[in-house]
Design a binder for these strands. Structure first.
Length: 316
DNA sequence: AATCGAAGCAACCGCCGTCTC
DNA sequence: CGAGACGGCGGTTGCTTCGAT
């Protein structure tokens, strides 16, 4: 429902009272000086007390993304790139979680780097040859290990199925719409815009689960994913059901999830256990993975990330 | 030298969860 | 318990820079 005019007017007045756009050196200096002298606090107070015509949110962003003294400047190192690619393949667009594993880097920086550079590079790698697993960048092979082994027609059929689901009467029940909108968190899903990303959710011929552990794979109904027509996709979904200890019934009709918390909860209640060492240390075998995931621990992103860190010791 | 498109980046927007009153 | 303020997050936008023509 629309807000009443009076409320909107007040909100607009609030908004208009603040400066927007690029920060001037003077503003930077004011904020920097205030933060160094007083430390972090309530951002709207900081904005006011520092004498800035900015909203607290804007100050927070400027500090976190640009002024913070511990920020690392310059290009991403190959190790950082590797870690970003790896973490993204595991947890998707959780930029802040990824950033927390890269000291001196911000979520915004990583997000920009992914969207502008890595995503394109990965896309190019896939389109170069459907059967050629040799990527130009060996660091990316880790990520492509499974994905590349998928046959192109699998990917194509998946993509077409997704497109057709937009007109399907059942599409409204799906956690993901065909337009790429993700109902877990109400955000759009850039995953869906190319074949590579479609591949990543369908698993691969090694039987090694990759993306089903991402939000996207988890959220889809079994029947919907079977429509992709790939035996490999089917196999990976069966495996997914097994490793996550999801009953058949629930796998076919998972609870609709409106936000990320619901998703996390869903994962938690299915008593999965993610042994990252086994899964990602040597990119785990099917058997190992199943065994390790059946231990029954709760899904805990923090410890999950801790484990990942052990695979990338140069970041600790 | 001028133009144009791509790439990179900073910042905004809107949504959601949490906290406080 | 509900409303409002605030902080955090991810997606998107729009400006700037750079390189090709």
């Amino acid at each position: 429902m629309r807000k009443p005019e009076a409320v909107l007017g007040k909100e607009n007045a609030e908004k208009n009272k603040y400066r927007k756009g690029l920060w001037s050196p003077e503003e930077d200096e004011k904020l920097m000086r205030y933060m160094l002298n007083n430390g972090q606090g309530c951002w709207s107070d900081i904005a006011r007390n520092a004498g800035l015509q900015r909203c607290g949110k804007s100050c927070r962003l400027r500090w976190i993304n640009y002024l913070r003294p511990d920020l690392k400047r310059g290009a991403f190192s190959p190790q950082e790139e590797e870690l970003i690619v790896h973490l993204h393949s595991l947890i998707g667009n959780r930029w802040s979680q990824i950033a927390s594993r890269l000291p001196g880097r911000t979520d915004n920086e990583i997000k920009n780097f992914w969207n502008s550079t890595l995503k394109k590079r990965l896309k190019n790698n896939l389109s170069s040859s459907p059967y050629n697993h040799e990527s130009s960048d060996p660091r990316l092979d880790m990520m492509f290990g499974g994905i590349m082994s998928m046959q192109e027609h699998d990917i194509m059929s998946m993509n077409m199925s997704m497109d057709s689901s937009s007109t399907s009467s059942s599409s409204s029940q799906l956690p993901f719409s065909a337009t790429g909108h993700n109902s877990f968190d109400g955000s759009s899903m850039p995953f869906l815009d190319n074949h590579f990303e479609m591949a990543s959710m369908a698993g691969n011929t090694n039987g090694f689960l990759q993306a089903p552990l991402t939000e996207m794979g988890m959220g889809m109904r079994m029947e919907e994913r079977f429509r992709y027509g790939s035996l490999e996709a089917q196999r990976s979904m069966e495996l997914e059901r097994e490793v996550l200890c999801v009953p058949h019934e629930e796998m076919n009709h998972p609870p609709l999830m409106n936000n990320r918390s619901s998703f996390d909860q869903y994962l938690g209640t299915n008593e999965q256990n993610l042994n990252v060492e086994e899964m990602f240390g040597d990119m785990g075998s099917h058997g190992q993975l199943q065994e390790s995931l059946k231990m029954g621990n709760e899904w805990d992103l923090e410890s999950f990330m801790q484990d990942i860190s052990s695979s990338f010791p140069h970041f600790l």
